[in-house]
Design a protein around this nucleic acid. Structure first.
Lengths: 234, 234
DNA sequence: CCTGCCCAAATCGCATGCAGTTGCGCGCCA
DNA sequence: TGGCGCGCAACTGCATGCGATTTGGGCAGG
């Protein structure tokens, strides 16, 4: 499925485009509403429209890209309410991750996770995009440790969506605390009972969501679309 | 995506194919391993390979279809372990559904849900496929009542995957009890506290999973792939 | 009778071409 | 100056064509 297909490495042009756009979105290089015409996309990745088009379809299925008939594809613009839903789902899924993982981490796994957190620490004063990407990588890596392909897939997808929501709706930045929370998470997953670990993950994600989403001045100009949305539903 | 693109009705050939195959899989008309060549697919839906191919991509992203490079697409063959993961995730997601819904159901909504259960009752002696489809429809309708598009999307997807798992790994049938459980669910969602409703949903889904999955003689010939899988991973 | 090789048919991967739709800019009119 | 409508360029929707790859079945050899 997607996970196995995204595993680019051979001549997988399709996966390359998907991954490229995903990363661009995650790092906030692409912002909601940005246009993604098939032609120019294919050109910049050195392939024909066909593949670019296919990739856009995939990304639309993941919720990162919006596809309207006969219109240029755009980067999705999650509403605050979307963001709320995404984080609710994310909490539910990542609780499962830590529940399955609690007490099973091997030393190399712990080391790998700590290495990611260290990278986060190193990047904490760099561009915003890198921080978000690394934090996301931490959560995805955690999911991958479960070796449950379907869970991995959903966590990955929801993490990307969350990243998009953060970069478009969130405050400029607030990753400082997340780093400590990640370290604490590793510890509690390694040693703690699964309930406690699950609870801590839930609190961590809630903290991320409220630090970034609820506190700040979420709404900019383009938010009028989310305001008008209820009126346009019928 | 599904939600916004499912706005079918006009000339949406793409959505038609997706929905057609989804339904065929859900009703067990298509079984895991069945081949889905682009040509014949497009022919039977009256479109060119291009669209059929695109639809297969979408279904692969949803996990219903397996796509291997240069090979004919096949209906996915979930392993028992996949099925376990799917139901774990499904429990987590549907708990959210009933938590959001508890105590908010309007009378027409209750009536609509009861109508679906009634249809289940009517179809309880018909072909297996119809029962599974209606039970699935119940859960999806429940999710739709939350009006949370992203949650709806994930629940829908996971329900389809669960349906595929049931029809391929499950016993011939055991929907009798599910009908009563659905009725009980409606009641507790309508009146009960959200915790209780959430708990009942979890128990219902666990019951479905264990009735169908754990009890029976899950493994047939093709399961040797899942047996060999761990050895082939590196 | 079983095994292994080789070739033709089936099928996929991808680019390109054409037709239909959108929307943007420019000129016209108030 | 500001609003309106028209026409063209850009873009998408989709089909088809060609080369590459897999498959499975026949034939030769053990």
């Amino acid at each position: 499925m997607t996970a196995s297909k995204a595993r680019s490495g051979d001549g997988d042009r399709f996966g390359k485009i998907c991954q490229g756009i995903r990363r661009a979105i995650l790092e906030a290089a692409l912002m909601p509403g940005d246009r993604l015409p098939e032609d120019s996309l294919g050109e910049s990745f050195g392939v024909s429209r066909t593949i670019a088009r296919h990739a856009l379809g995939q990304l639309a299925a993941e919720g990162l890209v919006e596809l309207r008939r006969n219109r240029i594809a755009t980067v999705s613009a999650p509403t605050p309410s979307d963001a709320r839903d995404i984080f609710d789902i994310r909490v539910a899924l990542e609780r499962q991750v830590v529940q399955h993982l609690a007490g099973t981490l091997t030393d190399p796994q712990v080391a790998e996770l700590k290495a990611i957190v260290e990278a986060e620490h190193a990047a904490r004063h760099g561009p915003d995009g890198a921080s978000i990407r690394l934090a996301t990588e931490f959560h995805i890596r955690l999911a991958e440790l479960t070796r449950k392909p379907i869970l991995i897939r959903y966590v990955t997808e929801i993490c990307y969506r969350a990243g998009l929501s953060l970069s478009s709706l969130g405050r400029p930045h607030s990753s400082e605390c997340a780093i400590n929370e990640h370290l604490a998470l590793i510890e509690v997953i390694r040693t703690g009972p699964s309930d406690k670990a699950s609870q801590m993950m839930a609190e961590h994600l809630e903290a991320v969501a409220s630090r970034a989403l609820l506190g700040g001045e979420g709404r900019q100009a383009r938010d009028l679309v989310s305001i008008l949305q209820p009126y346009a539903e019928d």
